[in-house]
Amino acid sequence: MSERIVVVGAALWHGGRLLAARRSAPAELAGRWELPGGKVEPDEAPDAAVVRELREELGVDAEATGRVPGEWPLRTPYVMQVWTARLRPGSAPPRPLQDHDELCWLTPGRIWDVDWLDHDVPAVRDTLAHLGAHETG
């Protein structure tokens, strides 16, 4: 069986809005939007990776609140899992620190106003469906 590398995407909700992050690198992804996140390190739990990635990429203190069911294929051997997350009380506001040049808070009615990366589209769609059946916190 080939090795799978899990990438976590954070569906960070605050005030009923989802945070989207615009890629600044690599060049082929620059200008497109994604859920912030990154690779799960060896021996790291995926929910811990969400918290670490949000701190490294956005400078926020967040907590993972639950996994969205399913996985979405990226380039082999990568697969994406999405976790919902929220800012902890007292966290600094998110700001782009690594790999992004702009952030945008999107209400559910405006989710598709940005040009999501192709592989994020089904993940975002499924995340919205999942959250529609649950509280967004």
Rank of each mutant, 00 (worst) to 15 (best):
A25C: 00
P26G: 14
A27L: 05
G31L: 02
G31H: 00
R32D: 06
R32N: 13
E34D: 12
G37R: 05
K39R: 13
V40Q: 07
E41D: 10
E41W: 04
E41R: 10
E44S: 05
A45V: 04
P46W: 14
D47G: 10
A48I: 09
A48N: 07
A48V: 04
R52G: 14
E53N: 10
E53D: 08
R55I: 09
E56R: 15
E57V: 03
E57D: 12
L58Q: 03
L58K: 07
L58R: 01
L58C: 12
A62T: 01
A62V: 03
G66R: 01
G70K: 09
W72M: 01
P73T: 08
P73A: 11
L74Q: 12
L74G: 13
R75K: 12
R75L: 11
T76A: 11
P77F: 07
P77A: 02
V79T: 04
Q81P: 08
Q81V: 09
V82W: 08
W83L: 01
T84S: 14
T84A: 06
T84M: 06
R86G: 10
R88D: 06
R88P: 13
P89L: 03
G90W: 01
A92T: 02
P93D: 01
P93Q: 05
R95K: 11
R95I: 08
R95A: 15
P96D: 02
Q98C: 08
Q98N: 08
D99K: 08
D101V: 05
D101A: 09
E102L: 05
E102D: 13
L103N: 07
L103Q: 08
L103I: 09
L106H: 06
L106T: 09
L106A: 14
T107Q: 14
P108H: 06
G109T: 07
I111C: 03
I111V: 05
V114I: 14
V114T: 11
D115K: 10
D118I: 13
D120L: 03
P122H: 08
A123Y: 00
A123V: 07
V124W: 12
R125F: 04
R125H: 01
T127N: 00
T127P: 11
L128N: 08
L128S: 06
A129K: 03
A129Y: 00
H130F: 02
G132H: 05
G132E: 00
A133L: 07
E135C: 13
T136N: 11
G137P: 12
G137Q: 09
